[in-house]
Amino acid sequence: MENKASTRSPTDFLSTVLGQTVKVRLNSGIDYKGTLACLDGYMNIALENTEEYVDGRLNNTYGDTFIRGNNVLYISAEKSS
């Protein structure tokens, strides 16, 4: 019996979180949390209502943020409250 979750691709995941709150971890260890507005095939990301976290602490807030894909370590969905 095959696990249905294991057959999902990263593209499937990203399409389900478009418009949702995500956390983007950069290779540098800095985290950005915001609403995923769009992304492209190079994994360039546009976030809205973005918060920047350094060492787990809120460092700054931004309206719109653009992150180059080559800086991204991972993207995770944030749990809704």
Rank of each mutant, 00 (worst) to 15 (best):
S81V: 03
S81P: 06
L47K: 12
K4C: 07
F66H: 13
I67Q: 04
R57I: 01
S81K: 11
T7F: 03
A46F: 12
M1T: 00
K23G: 03
E51Q: 15
I30M: 09
V17F: 04
M1Q: 01
I30F: 05
N71W: 10
E78L: 15
G29A: 10
N3T: 00
L73T: 13
K23L: 06
M1V: 00
L26C: 10
D64A: 14
L39Y: 04
N3H: 05
G69Y: 04
L39V: 00
I30P: 01
M1N: 00
G63Q: 11
L47N: 08
K79V: 14
L26F: 02
S9V: 05
T35F: 05
S76C: 13
V72Q: 05
A46M: 12
Y42W: 10
N60K: 08
E2A: 00
N27D: 06
A37W: 14
G56N: 07
K79S: 14
C38E: 15
F66T: 11
G41M: 09
D40K: 03
T21K: 15
D55Q: 04
V54R: 14
E2V: 01
Y62W: 12
N70R: 10
I30S: 01
K4A: 14
N70P: 00
D12E: 08
T11H: 04
T35R: 14
L36A: 04
A37Y: 07
A37P: 14
G41W: 08
R25K: 15
N3S: 01
R8C: 12
G34E: 10
I30R: 14
R57H: 01
N71H: 10
L18N: 08
N60L: 02
L58Y: 07
N44A: 00
R57Y: 02
V24A: 03
F13K: 10
F66R: 15
E51R: 15
S81G: 05
V24N: 05
L47W: 10
L26T: 03
T61V: 13
K4M: 10
L14Q: 01
E78Q: 08
D12W: 07
I67A: 05
Y74L: 03
